[in-house]
């Protein structure tokens, strides 16, 4: 479904992505782990062109683009095929919850209004926000805002949903309920790429785990392989720092 080949990205002198390749099958949930500064978020943002990579090729739903020299229409096509869930929710502050979900459907995908409204409301119901249609982001809690953000992504019916540390900005008690919703999304069988620090979540949901450090993919495999039997020294070091004690490496 999604294939990234030899992606490189620098910000001025800082090389954030040194040579990253990634392969995501349809229906997979891929979790990307790694210390901060490893480039995970940048990689994600290169996929929907929020950052413009310096080099690299991306094949998304059988369409190849060069990440650096993609034309405006290719960029737009990629954005239509993907949806992004931001760490800080990324909700439009001047629109209600319903409006947030609607905008992408009506303006970007030209879905007729009545159908779009129904689709939006159904999705908001699906994330348990049925009584919050007309609330503005400022009137919602962090967890609710993130759920609107997830609903917005799901309603767009994309080929891939990209999650950028979706629970990092939430209070601890809200993290659980948000992860439940993300699991719900995974159960629908949609392809997902999730950058997160939530290891239990990765164990439960991921089909494939990727460990990145310093701009490279260090190791990848299934959740079991990575957590119980990491091959690389760096992976072991990272996991030993953040895993709970029952996982002795």
């Amino acid at each position: 479904m999604l294939e990234l080949e030899h992606v490189k990205k620098s910000f001025g002198k800082l090389e954030v992505l040194k040579d990253v390749s990634l392969s995501v099958n349809k229906g997979d949930v891929v979790v990307i782990l790694g210390p901060s500064g490893s480039g995970k978020t940048t990689l994600l943002r290169c996929i929907n062109f929020l950052e413009r990579a310096d080099e690299g090729k991306m094949t998304l739903a059988d369409q190849s683009v060069n990440l650096h020299s993609a034309t405006r229409s290719e960029v737009h096509a990629a954005r239509i095929k993907t949806a992004f869930v931001f760490q800080n929710y990324g909700l439009f502050r001047n629109k209600t919850a319903l409006g947030n979900v609607l905008l992408g459907l009506v303006s970007a995908r030209k879905i007729p209004k009545a159908k779009a409204i129904k689709q939006a409301k159904d999705t908001l119901d699906w994330v348990q926000l049925q009584d919050k249609y007309d609330c503005y982001p400022s009137q919602l809690s962090g967890g609710q805002q993130q759920r609107v953000s997830i609903a917005r992504a799901v309603a767009l019916n994309p080929d891939v949903i990209l999650f950028d540390e979706p629970t990092s900005a939430l209070d601890p008690e809200l993290v659980c309920e948000t992860l439940e919703v993300i699991k719900q999304v995974a159960d629908t069988g949609i392809t997902m790429v999730v950058v997160t620090h939530e290891l239990q979540f990765a164990k439960d949901v991921a089909d494939h785990v990727v460990f990145m450090e310093d701009g490279y993919v260090v190791e990848e495999g299934t959740a079991n392989e990575i957590f119980s039997n990491p091959k690389e020294e760096r992976t072991k070091k990272f996991l030993s720092r953040i895993l709970p004690p029952e996982y002795s490496i």
Binding site: F11, V16, G39, T41, R45, E51, R52, N88, D164
Partner: peptide, 12 residues
């Protein structure tokens, strides 16, 4: 200008 990425740091 989107090309002017020196003002945008990783992390959004």
């Amino acid at each position: 200008n989107a090309k002017d990425t020196r003002n945008i740091r990783p992390g959004g």
